[in-house]
Design a protein around this nucleic acid. Structure first.
Lengths: 351, 351
DNA sequence: GTGAAAGCGCTAACAA
DNA sequence: TTGTTAGCGCTTTCAC
């Protein structure tokens, strides 16, 4: 055995109270940075904490506090499979967490609409809420609204698309540049030496995740596959109907499209187009997000690869991070890093 | 808002004691299936539990119990990057869990040696241990040793390679058949229409994970890529030196090897061979496990794809599962499913 | 500024 | 067979 040989019991607040020669209440005050303690006393306590290597037992703390964490997810009101999966996961986790003093809820805001998003954020009751997870565009008004949340002590995480210029505490989602690079690599390798054009479906130029994917995609295409010509992005606004209408024209105008990178939501439109039989030979397709529809497409050979992020992990991670930030506890970076999942029909998870 | 609208506080044992008209102690006895309660009383309590929808607060329970979970990992004494990563993760998690009443340790057993494994399991002090995670071969003696653990109330999970014929409580690891299928798909797609032979490096025929990978690999090769000829497995016993010695002969004997599936540990040997410059043109290579060495090979183009399982997830999942089983709590299947990660040089996680 | 004491939800002696 | 009571580690009144 290499670890856990001896079992020196962890010090408790009783120990530090004893060592610092103060009462439990005082230890608690400095632990929680509450006012009304003389500076000298604070020092004494901190010294004892450091000397004993004290780490607070959050489970016991929460039990005593009777605290209930209240977290809100703000999501686009758009309807697509990825979002409903996210919502399903929130509901499921919410049920599981009812018995761990944590309440989750979500609200909807018009997609790609920074003004509506800012308004929704501003309308939140900062007194009643401990943390907010935001999936939406990055604009000055959104940044301001986030700053306002932070001022009022609310923890903020960005979800799926980062808002790095804001004061958000953490970003929960994949590295979208790397995701775009991965898509390019797959498409390029699968196509082999043949020459032709690549069509890119995106959602909106306002969505940071979509932009970043395109960036990464172009970079690898230019570097490794110069014989493939990447066309301008088709903006589908994550809307299946719009996408279905746009595709035929784009394909016809350009000719010789041998690959498609569907980098946003709305796969349904693309699939409807394929199923109409209007496309021979079928281009190699790399799409995003594993959903019932994309699974089927993968299984049936309509999609060749799907790049995905696990919505369950996304939601669990957002909640863990918001809790940790709230408790001023450290987060485990490795556990919270959302993986860029690559799915072929062979490694799709069951169900 | 869709969820968490109202906040009906969860019932506690006080509530069920009141409803069932018994004392706290009796409720506790029923809850923990302790003896010495009249059947009729048990019924009453169960009814109250059901009526109120009571769910035990494990955090409070553990606090009161002062219980310390003691979990042991049994790992091959083999030295390779995957195993050391696993050990690093165990150590790291162990440190993090010191303050959550959980102690982790690991012991080493000669690799691919069922007798040594069974002996190691038998030598465990079942009184002092709450759970064991086992990474090793599946044989009758191992099964018996596991049965013995179970009889003594120890939770058992199999790790990385399943031992389905035993009474293990859970398997923590990837679906190795699907992993093999994925490798075949990648190799086949990357190679395109060219004809040639595929070399397979395996560890040991005793290792169930290795066997399953080969199974899945062959299935997809036969179905989708009949123009590729899959050779017999080269048994490298996860030993870099042995592998380096075996490869040249295998390549020479067969000729026209255009793809390699390195399905076990010991990538180092393969890489040393490549770096000796003895191989032109370099075959397309799909390997297993993301490690410092395989990262480098991926980045440098020596490996074309790496199939992996996250050792951090593996360890965390094993611990969560052992804890849940110990507490007779349900596990979240989705969270505990270990993903088959596919890495290209583009989507390697940082560091 | 500081401390004493009650209590969060549960368990475990010890009595009865 | 059942109940009483004193904690687990921490927070939070309410006094001093």
């Amino acid at each position: 055995m290499k670890t856990g040989q001896d079992t020196p019991l962890n010090p408790t607040i009783n120990d530090i109270a004893r060592v610092a020669k103060v009462s439990l209440a005082t230890v608690d005050r400095v632990l929680n940075a509450r006012p009304g303690v003389r500076d000298k006393t604070v020092q004494k306590v901190h010294k004892a904490i450091a000397d004993l290597g004290y780490v607070r037992d959050t489970a016991a703390a929460n039990l005593a506090r009777g605290r209930i964490y209240n977290f809100v997810f703000i999501l686009p009101s758009n309807s697509n499979e990825f979002l409903s999966s996210l919502e399903t996961q929130i509901d499921a986790l919410s049920r599981g967490l009812r018995h761990e003093r944590t309440r989750l809820s979500f609200i909807h805001v018009a997609a790609f609409d920074p003004v509506a998003l800012a308004k929704a954020i501003d309308s939140l009751d900062t007194q009643a809420i401990d943390g907010v997870a935001i999936l939406g565009p990055e604009t000055p008004s959104v940044r301001d609204s986030i700053a306002h949340l932070k001022e009022n002590g609310v923890t903020v995480v960005s979800l799926v698309a980062d808002i790095p210029s804001s004061e958000r505490d953490h970003y929960v989602g994949i590295d979208n540049i790397a995701a775009g690079r991965t898509a390019a690599q797959l498409l390029g390798r699968f196509l082999g030496p043949q020459q032709g054009k690549i069509l890119i479906l995106t959602g909106s130029m306002l969505a940071r995740d979509h932009l970043e994917r395109r960036l990464g995609f172009d970079e690898v295409m230019a570097r490794d596959f110069p014989h493939l010509q990447v066309l301008a992005s088709l903006e589908g606004r994550d809307d299946p109907d719009l996408i279905e209408r746009l595709i035929p024209g784009a394909l016809f105008d350009n000719g010789n499209v041998i690959g498609i990178y569907s980098s946003a939501a709305g796969n349904e439109g693309l699939l409807r187009f394929f199923r109409s039989g209007a496309c021979h030979p079928k281009p190699v397709v790399v799409a995003h997000e594993l959903t019932p529809l994309s699974r089927e497409a993968l299984a049936g050979g309509l999609f060749d690869a799907v790049i995905s992020q696990d919505t369950g992990h996304l939601v669990r991670s957002a909640v863990r991070v918001m809790r940790a930030k709230r408790d001023k506890m450290p987060i485990n970076a490795a556990q919270e890093r959302i993986r860029i999942d690559v799915y072929l029909k062979e490694n799709m998870p069951p169900e």
